[in-house]
């Protein structure tokens, strides 16, 4: 009996230590970037153009570029993803068609980002002749996040109690009215959170934009959606691996990584804050 307890104790403690190690890994990565990156951050770094073979100046065009790509991809992926999630969850009955759509969505979410890059290049850049442009990059990124948006929408709708729907129907509401007035208001916080989290994902993606939009060095702001832009993740890649002067550009790399990580941390925090606030609101109503 005591031996059994001992085994249990050893096992549980080692599992605890392993978990601690995993957490430690995250903090090692974050800490490493934060400690070395924060020294580089200044107003100039955030708002100036890169200069002197990317060893001086700032990363302003990369920040703006990432902003454009996030905005562009979300304009595309938000509505389609949410509508698609509503359709598959609220309208489709369990049938081969529903299973087909679900399998296809799963497949899409399993496709590696570099394949999206190839696809975006073949379809948007070359076939539709958009060229390397914000529109090509945004559409590629939008398709990449579509499964995430669909899934979060479905999860959010699933969490809505069926009695609410029944109640609404019993009062004579149509399906559309029920969804608009009853289901969506309840599911809305979760949908929004999911959407915000997918922004975080989009802003860090590199492989899909390599051949669809990202510019190696372009010290000006985009004028239209058919311009190329720099982007934070690609800029970090360039600084870390192929800058003209690697030693000198290292601080810029730390700074860029810090900005990228901060954006993602901020987005995650906003998402959880919104979730908490909207949940309270919905409950109060």
């Amino acid at each position: 009996m005591t031996q059994k307890r001992l085994i249990q104790k050893i096992a549980f403690i080692s599992f605890g230590l392993i978990s601690l190690m995993v957490v430690g890994l995250l903090f090692a990565i974050l800490g490493f970037i934060a400690i070395r990156g924060i020294k580089v951050i200044s107003w100039e770094f955030l708002t100036a153009m890169p200069d002197d073979g990317m060893t001086k100046g700032g990363i302003f065009p990369a920040i703006v570029g990432t902003g454009c790509l996030v905005l562009g991809s979300m304009i595309f992926a938000f509505p389609i993803g949410v509508l698609s999630g509503i359709y598959t969850h609220e309208y489709l009955k369990d049938s081969w068609f529903k299973r087909f759509i679900r399998v296809m969505t799963n497949n899409l979410s399993g496709i590696p980002s570099i394949v999206f890059g190839l696809f975006g290049m073949a379809l948007f850049v070359n076939y539709l002749e958009f060229g390397d442009s914000i529109i090509a990059g945004s559409l590629t990124l939008g398709l990449l996040t579509l499964p995430v948006v669909i899934r979060t929408t479905e999860e959010a709708l699933k969490s809505v109690d069926d009695t609410l729907r029944m109640g609404s129907y019993a009062l004579g509401a149509t399906k559309l009215q029920t969804i608009r007035r009853v289901v969506l208001p309840v599911a809305y916080p979760n949908i929004i959170t999911g959407l915000i989290l997918s922004i975080g994902r989009v802003s860090g993606e590199t492989a899909p934009i390599l051949f669809t939009v990202a510019a190696y060095f372009l010290p000006k702001l985009p004028g239209s959606i058919s311009d190329q832009v720099m982007a934070l993740p690609y800029h970090l890649y360039v600084l870390a691996t192929s800058g003209t002067n690697m030693e000198e550009s290292r601080p810029m790399a730390y700074g860029t990584a810090f900005v990228l990580i901060s954006i993602i941390l901020i987005i995650n925090t906003i998402a959880s804050l919104i979730r908490r606030r909207l949940h309270k609101k919905v409950k109060m109503n």
Binding site: G200, S203, G204, L236, Y237, A240, A253, L260, I261, I264
Partner: peptide
């Protein structure tokens, strides 16, 4: 732990690569 794991999932691959490289 849960949000920490989620955060780990949210770190862009290029940052992992940079960390790995250095």
């Amino acid at each position: 732990l849960k949000p920490i794991i989620e955060l780990l999932a949210g770190i862009p691959s290029v940052v992992f690569g940079f960390f790995g490289l250095i």
